[in-house]
Design a protein around this nucleic acid. Structure first.
Length: 417
RNA sequence: GGCCCCAUCGUCUAGUCAGGCCUAGGACACCGGGUUUUCAUCCCGGCAACUGGGGUUCAAAUCCCCAUGGGGUCACCA
């Protein structure tokens, strides 16, 4: 659904066309407020703007009724009664050509004899999808219909309606669907995939758009990262694939991290705010400049915004968790005790606790002990972060601050050494 | 099952329309190496595909047919 929208958007913008947003809410049970709101939110978040609408089909009932009557009068439709469902109207298929001249697939032939009459107005008075969208597309003078190729099979029905209603045929472009990682259908069944859910997971809208666009389309060269502007300029239905693609989260993650790395700390900070809140971190004591430094330090280490909080949690929390394997490997070893307590004492003497000061201090310690720098950095890292991997040790100490650093060293000495 | 769509590395794809430039290019992932205080980033290198079978042609990933496989659709859902 997001892909349908983005291709429509790219196509409209590429051609200086007009994009009309229409909410097809003709199912009184399934069309909830939440559902349409989620669509609107997703489009807004992704930055896919439209020029007209949204129109709600549920508010255009009288229009559809007009055309139902027209078909009845022409003899192209008939009433059918059902004791439970009420009086509905059924369209009668005539022998017309319903072949599709698809912009992506070329000619698709159908045997009209195989088509069956179908309902256009339901017992509850609402139009069916196939009918409402043909009436709307006709009245709104839609020139191009770009949608998933799961719609191919009801296109002949719609073409028959166009003929009966006397509307000009639009051009159809059936784009391949996106399959889930397991190769089965994504949209309806997996339910997920509202773009809003990807926001929640910490993906950037630019990354999502870029990734989705490349699932079924390519600019024709080897470029993988494209701005919206570049995509608009290069987009062409001719370059859209016929085969369906699988959604590969691993590649999306890579692309997202690429976009994160290119974002200035200032903007990242604004976006990260929500996830920091969500993680429950207390930020009242923390300054903006401090946060920006932390972001800068971790920028190329996380793939999603929410991952930032899991990686930097030792900077926010007072209690940290220690990875037992890291503790075993770097703290519970010969000499660690002496080394850490010595480091503790020396760090305590520092006045500014600046990166430069810290570096000088730590380098001195390693020369005094006659060891390589890694022999100090690793135990120290584990003692203050709890893990054997983190950003640079000097920056880490500085950002953590003198007080927290000393507290953690103290705790580590008491607990593990 | 009927009808429809589709088919290049594990994945996304370039190449297919206008057959030779393809000993099939790129990206993600993976593997190896380098840089580094660890991890990540970054840099270098590697692995890896034209679904199968028939045609057409001097020549086929590219055109045609069949088979196989995958997907879609058969609602008073959209």
């Amino acid at each position: 659904m997001e892909q349908d929208c983005s291709y429509n958007w790219l196509f409209a913008r590429n051609n200086d066309g007009k994009l009309i947003l229409r909410i097809e809410d003709t199912d009184q049970v399934r069309s909830t407020q939440e559902a349409t709101q989620s669509i609107l939110d997703s489009l807004t978040w992704l930055g896919l703007d439209w020029d007209e609408g949204p129109y709600y089909q549920s508010q255009r009932l009288n229009i559809y009724q007009e055309y139902v009557e027209k078909l009845l009068k022409q003899g192209d439709a008939e009433y059918i009664d059902d004791p439970e469902k009420g009086r509905a109207v059924r369209f009668k298929i005539r022998d017309v050509i319903t072949d599709i001249d698809d912009l992506i697939h070329g000619k698709i032939k159908f045997d009209t004899a195989l088509l069956e009459d179908f309902i256009i107005k339901k017992g509850d008075g609402f139009p069916t999808y196939n009918f409402a969208c043909v009436v709307d597309d006709g009245l709104m003078e839609i020139t191009h219909i770009i949608r998933g190729d799961d719609h191919i099979s009801n296109t002949p029905r719609q073409i028959a309606l166009y003929h009966a209603l006397g509307f000009d045929l639009p051009k159809f472009a059936h784009i391949p669907m996106i399959l889930g990682e397991d190769g089965t259908r994504l949209s309806k069944r997996h339910g997920a995939t509202s773009a809003v859910e990807y926001r929640e997971k910490g993906y950037l809208p630019e990354a999502i758009i870029n990734f989705i666009a490349l699932l079924g389309w390519s600019p024709g060269n080897d470029q993988e990262i494209l701005t919206k502007q570049e995509m608009i300029e290069k987009f062409s239905l001719k370059r859209v694939n016929k085969a369906s693609a699988r959604f590969d989260t691993v590649k999306l993650d890579w692309m997202n991290s690429k976009y994160i790395r290119e974002l200035p700390a200032e903007q990242l900070s604004a976006k990260l705010h929500y996830y920091i809140q969500k993680a429950g971190f207390d930020t009242t004591q923390l300054s903006d400049t401090w946060l920006k430094k932390l972001i800068e330090l971790y920028k190329d280490r996380f793939k999603t915004l929410s991952e930032f909080t899991t990686q930097t949690s030792p900077f926010f929390r007072n209690q940290i968790e220690y990875e037992s394997s890291a503790v075993e490997k770097f703290l519970k070893i010969d000499g660690a005790s002496r080394l850490i307590s010595d480091t503790y004492a020396k760090l305590k003497e520092l006045e500014n606790f600046s990166i430069q000061e810290i570096e000088d201090c730590l380098r001195d310690i390693t020369t005094q002990h006659g060891i390589g720098f890694g022999k100090l950095a690793q135990p120290l890292r584990v003692a203050i972060i709890g893990k054997s991997a983190s950003a640079g040790i000097f920056e880490t100490l500085e950002l953590l601050g003198k007080e927290k650093t000393l507290n953690r060293l103290e705790y580590a000495m008491k607990t593990f050494l």
